[in-house]
Design a protein around this nucleic acid. Structure first.
Lengths: 223, 223
DNA sequence: TGACATTGGTGCCGAATTGTTACTAATTCG
DNA sequence: CGAATTAGTAACAATTCGGCACCAATGTCA
């Protein structure tokens, strides 16, 4: 009844996402010479007793310098596809980080999601699933706020949503929905971005206001 | 650059969900004598080269007799909590099955989600996450249809949604939204359920009608 | 200094969507 | 037959949404 438990090789592959010059970008690391692909996702094997998200935090910190503000599992993959470390199973984790301007080491670089270099097939799958999961969960979880610094303008927030959803949003509707949700509160700071009227800074501060129960939506199916 | 890859023990834990006498139920198997808990989720180690969902299908088939109609990963867990087979890492998979009336073996039994027996802590977590994931994805994926036989009445469908969402829905609104989505088509069969007017049978047949792009929703956050 | 461009922010209205009540339809039971 | 029960729809009120127009505050440049 207690089967002999086979041991498998397990990797945690991290997709570090950040808004970067008007596009969503992910962080890749240079592969060792001799590897099939020049770049790969940051990855490692979880240490004994280390949780998967903890491993993702450690891996991210090593490459990024700071710890991302949010982690979300993308799923475990055990297709036969090639992994850079030949792991049998990968756990993909999406890590969200606000735009950072600290310099990276020479072995890491940001790439826009729409212009990635060749990756090992397993990593390619992980990236695609990370993008899909993040886009799918945008309106169930405050993901967008994790891609912004602690205070931000409403235009910043709308821009992040537009990046994530890859479409333009209507300003008035966006703000109306946001106001109704009691998710942000204004600070008394204003930011002048060069030209144009200065914008008020807001912070993410969700009030306990539970949303009204809405009817069932049949028009949101993605599969 | 290529770390030494430690080998870990990996289990696939399956949460087989089915509507059962007006409640969502899951299938548990009797534990071997001497185990800490009397019941556990069906689980196994994936075989070499076997995909995770393939493993879940195999495990389900052994217990259920038939293959569930849908699988959805619930995530990988590597908290330190106890697993019946002491696996370091669990991949939880939710399996959806229509109500079956075939007899089960004596070592398997349905339990309503709201009245489960004691489970190993890891399995308890997997069950909770499976329920959360399924409820969360109900309106992004045709999960509800996978809990029904190929043809069903609209009242059946609404009842499944009410089980999944754990609240009453308004009949007229439900049907209007469904009609607008072009997800079902009527068959020419009718079912007489004893008393009351016979109901027309429908089948799940999604038309390519892509839903209109809606505005951003801030009122659906679950965390 | 004063147009003008640029970005932030809001008011309002018609159209679409949603929640609700109430009604009709078809069947079984007694 | 009529009451009870379940299926299905019409119609209306309330709400929400998308779009347009407008006002506000700043920098730019003649």
């Amino acid at each position: 009844m207690k089967p002999a438990v086979r041991r498998t090789t397990l990797a945690v592959d991290v997709v570090i996402l950040s808004p970067r010059s008007d596009a969503l970008a992910i962080l890749l690391v240079r592969s060792p010479t001799g590897a099939r692909e020049r770049w790969s996702l940051p990855w490692d094997t979880p240490q004994t007793g280390e949780g998967l998200e903890d491993a993702a935090a450690r891996i991210s910190r090593q490459v990024l310098g700071t710890t991302p503000t949010f982690f979300e599992q993308v799923g475990a993959l055990s297709d036969g596809r090639r992994h850079p470390g030949d792991a049998e199973v990968s756990v993909g984790i999406a890590a969200l980080s606000p735009a950072v301007d600290s310099a990276l080491g020479t072995d890491a670089e940001w790439f826009p999601l729409s212009g990635l270099p060749a990756l090992a097939p397993r990593h390619r799958t992980v990236v695609d699933r990370a993008a899909a999961v993040v886009r799918q969960r945008v309106d169930q979880s405050p993901l967008a706020f994790r891609l912004l610094p602690p205070t931000f303008t409403l235009s910043d927030l709308q821009a992040v949503y537009e990046l994530l959803l890859d479409r333009r949003l209507h300003k008035a509707s966006f703000r109306r929905a946001l106001q109704a949700s009691y998710l942000v509160e204004p600070t008394d700071e204003w930011r002048s971005e060069g030209r144009g009227r200065p914008a008020q800074l807001f912070r993410y501060a969700p009030k306990k206001r539970r949303g009204l129960r809405r009817g069932v939506r049949f028009d949101l199916f993605t599969d």
